[in-house]
Design a protein around this nucleic acid. Structure first.
Length: 425
RNA sequence: GGAGAGGUGGCUGAGUGGUUGAAAGCGCUCCCCUGCUAAGGGAGUAAGGGUUAAUAGCCCUUCGAGGGUUCGAAUCCCUCCCUCUCCGCCA
């Protein structure tokens, strides 16, 4: 959520910033609603002040044994007027809140203007795509040849966009997760957390998935429903919801491994082959809560932590900054890490690292006590994949494949793979 | 699933219809005393919002959430959520 105060005072600048996303913020209607709200609120508060004064007077009169009947009549009349005014105020306020929750975050000045992912800008490149003296296969062919990746069974059990892994490949997947958690906890200073995979709607409003992206979520049928988390960002970031964190405890750094569930509504026909885009996948997620003036540095740092994983795994990647048309709803600035996939002859997203400023914190009422002011103020939240396990597995399969269809194991994963030197049929 | 207890400020915890936005304690801040890491004394200390030049005043809201009763609700009624204890069941 954008600070409502600045929405009032600098509506034009904000509209201009959001226009870079092709988001139209109707500042004029907002201001009309706002001034209506102001008038109504002043009315309501005046009536409430009268009511309170009247009630106190009645209390005093009663204590002295005076006749209170005429005062009661006046108070009752006032109550009616107050009720009407409150109802009007409430409806205007609800409209304003709807608008505010639907506004995306302001963009950082570095964010290039663009329409879609084609306009993202490369910031750096690491590693060289491997050269093969044979035609490299993609992970689907490799996995099916090994008889360790099985989409047919998954389709029978669940449907499309699910997968089944078996044997050493399943173990490699698990090894990746262990490896990533170990690096982030022992070298990067993150606290490992285990969190719920089903969350309530408030948590999703807090991180920005609701109310706007209801259709992307899986939800249960109960009342109230639970939602399956689309990313660990949701439960982990909400750890600080409604808290006031002492400055001495910042920054908070959390890492969690969770499954992620996405309905992938609207992505029909996109990445239908293989494990790239699934309804369920595993991810190791990094989350930081920091003082506001440190979030910019923290984004660089957090992105670097994700890059370390790819580098240790020896996976070629590049870093791009998302353009205004591709950056997420709540993000102020996002770097994507894209790993090289020989099977697609392309770089594909494997991590997305974002600075949310106080956008999520304001929705969650997540604050810290600023020693300079002594007041609770919204902190800044960041998160990034460190990294997506399913896609990392694909990347290893495709980059580490050999001519006979077997897959060698990156040396950093060997300690996690027991006796396996390579994965072969 | 059954029975019971409870959700109050940064924390602990009083408070069953009228100057209670809320006792007390802890913590924190400032001051005083004390020549020394101890102790004591005093003062202050919730958040959000409106009005305003104002971080001055004044006003409104908030005691789990939402409804209701009432002139007036932390206090009474209803619904829901959550926590704890015991029993049952269960990985």
């Amino acid at each position: 959520m954008i600070d409502p105060k600045s929405l009032r005072t600098s509506a034009k600048e904000i509209a201009a910033n959001l226009a870079r996303r092709n988001f139209e913020f109707d500042a004029e209607s907002y201001n009309v609603l706002e001034s209506e709200r102001k008038t109504l609120q002043v009315d309501v508060e005046k009536l409430r002040a009268e009511r309170n004064a009247g009630a106190k007077a009645i209390g005093r009169a009663k204590a002295q044994g005076d006749d209170i009947a005429p005062m009661l009549a006046a108070a009752e009349d006032l109550g009616g007027k107050l009720g009407d005014a409150e109802a009007k105020l409430q409806s205007v306020q609800a409209m304003i809140t709807d608008i505010e929750l639907g506004l995306p975050n302001l963009l950082h000045e570095d964010v290039p203007v663009g329409l879609d992912e084609g306009d993202n800008e490369e910031c750096k490149q690491w590693g060289e795509p491997p050269q093969f003296d044979f035609i490299p296969k993609d992970h689907v062919d490799l996995g099916e040849h090994l008889e360790m990746l099985d989409f047919d069974s998954a389709a029978k059990i669940s449907g499309s966009r699910f997968s089944v892994m078996r044997g050493p490949l399943a173990r490699l997947h698990r090894a990746l997760i262990q490896f990533m958690l170990d690096i982030h906890t022992t070298e990067h200073g993150y606290l490992e957390t285990y969190v719920p995979y089903l969350v309530n709607s408030d948590a999703l409003v807090g991180t920005g998935q609701l109310p706007k992206f209801e259709n992307d979520q899986f939800k249960t049928t109960g009342d109230p429903p639970f939602y399956l988390i689309p990313t660990a960002e949701v439960p982990v970031t909400n750890l600080v919801r409604e808290n006031i964190t002492e400055a001495s405890e910042l920054p908070l750094r959390y890492v969690a491994h969770t499954p992620c569930f996405r309905s992938e509504a609207g992505s029909y026909g996109k990445d239908t082959r293989g494990m790239i885009r699934q309804h369920q996948f595993e991810k190791v997620e990094l989350v930081q809560m920091v003082e506001p003036d440190k979030s910019s540095d923290a984004l660089e740092e957090l992105t670097g932590h994700a890059e370390v994983i790819l580098e240790r795994l020896g996976l070629p990647y590049r870093r791009v900054i998302l353009c205004s048309g591709d950056v997420g709803f709540g993000s102020h600035k996002t770097y994507d890490l894209e790993v090289w996939l020989p099977g697609q002859n392309a770089y594909r997203e494997i991590s997305s690292c974002s600075n949310y400023l106080d956008f999520q914190a304001r929705r969650m009422q997540a604050r810290w006590r600023n020693p300079e002011t002594g007041n609770p103020e919204f902190l800044h939240t960041l998160n990034g994949s460190g990294v997506a396990a399913g896609r990392a597995l694909i990347a290893i399969m495709e980059n580490y494949q050999m001519s006979d269809g077997s897959i060698s194991i990156p040396s950093v994963l060997k300690p996690y793979m027991g006796d396996f030197k390579k994965i072969s049929k």
